[in-house]
Design a binder for these strands. Structure first.
Lengths: 138, 138
DNA sequence: TATTGTTATACTCTATAACTATA
DNA sequence: TATAGTTATAGAGTATAACAATA
């Protein structure tokens, strides 16, 4: 993995390296990567439907169902029918889900901090900015 | 996908965005992403064994076999037993494989160029450097 | 008629173990 | 006995189509 590789290969390598470093943390908290992604998305606020949530995290809506089933059974999220459109189900974090997400997020930030060691604050800021630019330039 | 997301999520988002943009190019040239990764690795020179190649690109050695079968049938790579250790097979690009890789690489660089539009040369350099740092900090 | 949530099914990708031939 | 390549198989992950309830 050197700097003259394709950018996609570099992103994949960095992403895989980060995911490997974060896996033990997630295991320790009994969450899969996708479950954590769902909690993170919901930590910004409740979502009006499962379909919206699926699109937001770029996950298949049919696979999201089993994921939410598990999280609901664990008491971390709640699904309630939308009074305005009874087809849709509002999804939100429970208070326990909120606590759990905050704990995992903090632990993951520590891991990222270790991986970023050696990069200046300015470099880190530019890295995040550039990655966000790439992710949104469709 | 915003800048305060987890770094792993940002990498994944950028990587997915790049992969989606490159897919049409690879399709057009009749190559899968992993086939292209193999050609790229071999473009730096022949590799002494399939096992070494698998480790180099972080791909499962058992899955690599079918991949090489296809590439060999297409005339893009060649496998020859190593005279020094007849268990091992040296893998190298054919001249056609070399041509094909160069063509795809150029097309992919054009795509990346489009995705990177708006980022200064210095920012691009720092991005590659930071990603390489993350990928190699184990 | 279209949409949300859901289930079932098939398909792909990936990991594991076992076999062969060489060392 | 250990290793490179290979094959087969089982498991996880993913995509597609179809159905019930509601709009």
């Amino acid at each position: 993995m050197t700097e003259d590789d394709d950018l996609a290969a570099l992103c994949a390598g960095a992403g895989r390296s980060l995911a490997e470093a974060e896996r033990p943390v997630l295991d320790q908290h009994g969450l899969s990567m996708w479950q954590y992604v769902v909690l993170s998305a919901l930590s910004a606020g409740a979502v009006p439907s499962q379909l919206v949530l699926a699109q937001q995290i770029r996950y298949d809506k049919t696979r999201l169902i089993a994921l939410l089933d598990t999280l609901e059974a664990a008491g971390l999220v709640a699904r309630e029918p939308d009074p305005a459109d009874r087809r849709a189900r509002v999804v939100r974090l429970t208070s326990e889900g909120s606590r759990r997400h905050a704990a995992v997020r903090d632990a993951i930030r520590e891991v990222e901090e270790r991986k970023l060691a050696g990069l200046s604050p300015e470099t880190r800021r530019q890295l995040r900015s550039a990655l966000a630019h790439l992710a949104n330039s469709d």
